[in-house]
Design a protein around this nucleic acid. Structure first.
Lengths: 144, 144, 144, 144
DNA sequence: TTTT
DNA sequence: TTTT
């Protein structure tokens, strides 16, 4: 069925690069997408949208983007859920970025090798949290 | 900035119609959007995407759609957060449906007047939950 | 660069299935996409958009769709130009349908074998015209 | 019905600003959208897509963009046709840009007052040609 | 050259 | 908490 998302926005922080147990690169990042309308209080004028990308694209994202980079994303919406430490079920809606277009002159990141840590052996965790909650996602679930 | 979502899917249950304190209709519904690829286990083959729509469109959705209805949605992604009963902050990503296209022969719902209950006076609550958590959204935040 | 089109509309006539010299199936069809606004005269209330699709998708389109079928299309815009019989250059803007979603209960076409004629040996012609103008498109130009 | 186009590309030349007989601004421009795939010959690697925009957006486009400017466009596909000088009917497919996002630091154009000539009194002509063919489009047909 |  |  049709499921299409197109966004232009800026990374709220440096992208996060990890690897599945099988060695497939996964990059996650959050886009701030400014709204066109302004509310009366002038507050909450952006949406913050979590994105995931895989393989070569993931490596490019990690190598060439950083906090503040302007990008275009073409992808699709995905929902998943996982069990948090406290046993609650957490529901996640995120964009799987099939293509990421860099909209600024190349500005290669200074290497941040601490980002290249492997994933926990049983999944890719909560890619947008600070914790490392394992979740039930394996290589079999890779979207492409 | 560009923020565009287009979906085709089926309502997972009847839409929910409420009203803001100022009397503006808000309908919420969840779309099951089947994925094109199939994972090896044959499991989790759909995404479940929460949608909101306002005003006339909200009333049409409530009047003409029900569980299982096939629709096309053109809209944008929105993020919000609100405080749950237990004090945790809950982050929500949903689609604001600017237009909803009905893709099946009209099949007017039998009236379900219990759906037309007003919202709590301080916001439109957690539109996708069963509870009535008030959240800090007022008429000033209406997207159009 | 980002180039994305999503449409819902009805086929203005039966799709046209041809083959490149190398045997790759190409289906073309035109979608009538009704406009949401109505002009004062009530005239010209639809856009008529030419679409192309390739390979397996082309065969499915030819086998399962006909005049009046309702479909969703996810694809991209493409421009090409070719020389007409009278020497003029003709510019074409069309949608390359990467995915076509059938939105109506299967209603398998009665076979129309005269549609399955091969393309002229030097290209796929003007797929939306009645003539068979050869154009400078070869298998090398296939978009996927 | 759903009709959505999102593009990122560069203006192939300065935008063209005109006015309808009723004084409504119309800007036209062509976007070069680079393809992601490369054909074997390395030729024809972009699509050239005609766009129209109206009113305030038209004036902004004319004031702030020029040849080479990078923009994002969110809009819809439109088809029209008009009679050429030689009596042939010309079919046009173009994008009505509902929003145009400037993707480069402001670089205000030097005024090009010769662009601000009014339209012929009976329509907005062939906005992408060099000629001034009148066509049967009046203010009544304005899309918004 | 246009669909329900 | 999920639709055909």
């Amino acid at each position: 069925m049709i499921n299409r998302v197109v966004l232009i926005g800026r990374l709220t922080k440096d992208p996060d690069l990890r690897y599945t147990p099988n060695g497939i690169p996964v990059a996650t990042f959050t886009l701030a997408v400014n709204r066109t309308y302004t509310n009366q209080q002038g507050e909450k004028e952006a949406d913050f949208i979590n994105c995931v990308t895989w393989r070569k694209q993931a490596e490019n994202v990690a190598n060439y983007l950083n906090k503040g980079s302007l990008v275009g994303v073409d992808g699709r919406l995905q929902t998943r859920n996982y069990e948090a430490q406290d046993g609650r079920r957490v529901y996640v809606t995120e964009v799987v970025a099939e293509s990421v277009q860099f909209l600024e002159p190349k500005n290669s990141r200074t290497n941040a090798p601490e980002k290249d840590e492997p994933l926990p052996s049983d999944g890719y965790g909560d890619p947008f949290g600070d914790s490392d909650d394992p979740i039930d996602v394996s290589d079999d679930d890779l979207p492409f």
